[in-house]
Nucleic acid binder design. Structure first.
Length: 194
DNA sequence: CCCTGATTCGC
DNA sequence: GCGAATCAGG
């Protein structure tokens, strides 16, 4: 992975949106290790990890017991998924800001934003048999302003195939993260080009 | 088993 | 700096 400014920006954006490391990796065509490794090096804010290593286990338990208070009671502002898929990021945000609070958070991990999720959708409230299968439309012409990212995802012809639904950068056919992949700086390309 | 994220450490 | 391997939890 060559971490161009665009790639880093894409990583920051996706990270700030709360996507899982694996999801970010999938979107950027890299491994989740690469994502988490880079995120770590960039000092991006750690997100709730399922695991606790020794050091932090002690750090968490000891002081909590010492204070005897209930810090946990009032503190759980974990980012709530918000329904409205607004622009993931303003196009060329020059600010070095690590996190943009104004960003609309998307539903994490379980169902990112892939429309394909609808195909494999769980159907909890299905008491009886379902005669009509869910719409197989992968990406209806939902061009809000006509600027959905047209980055292809998956193998064409397979059920998983779909297009990215993020909003494209103005004047470009791709969203920020895919633009990062699609447009490689000439400078960066020169030594590995064709 | 699948998933998650964090850290380690050879490169 | 990079990221696979590994760890650790759900």
């Amino acid at each position: 992975m060559d971490w161009t400014a665009e790639a880093i920006e894409a990583l920051r954006t996706l990270w700030a949106e709360g996507h899982s490391t694996a999801e970010i990796g999938r979107r950027m065509g890299i491994s989740k290790n690469a994502v988490v490794g880079k995120a770590h090096r960039l000092n991006l804010p750690a997100r709730p990890s399922p695991i606790r290593r020794e050091s932090e286990a002690r750090a968490t338990v000891a002081p909590a017991a010492a204070t005897a208070a209930e810090p946990v009671a009032a503190a759980e502002p974990v980012a709530e998924p918000q329904p409205l898929p607004v622009a993931p990021a303003a196009a060329p945000a020059p600010e070095p800001e690590p996190v943009r609070p104004a960003l609309t958070t998307l539903p994490p991990a379980t169902q990112p934003i892939a429309p394909a999720a609808a195909l494999a959708a769980p159907r909890p409230p299905a008491p009886a048999r379902r005669p009509a299968p869910p719409p197989a439309v992968v990406r209806p012409f939902q061009r809000r302003g006509g600027r959905s990212c047209c980055w292809p995802i998956g193998e064409p012809g397979t059920p998983e195939f779909r297009f990215c639904t993020a909003e494209a950068i103005p004047a470009k056919p791709y969203c920020p993260e895919h633009a990062a992949v699609a447009y490689v700086k000439a400078r960066d390309r020169r030594d590995d080009a064709a």
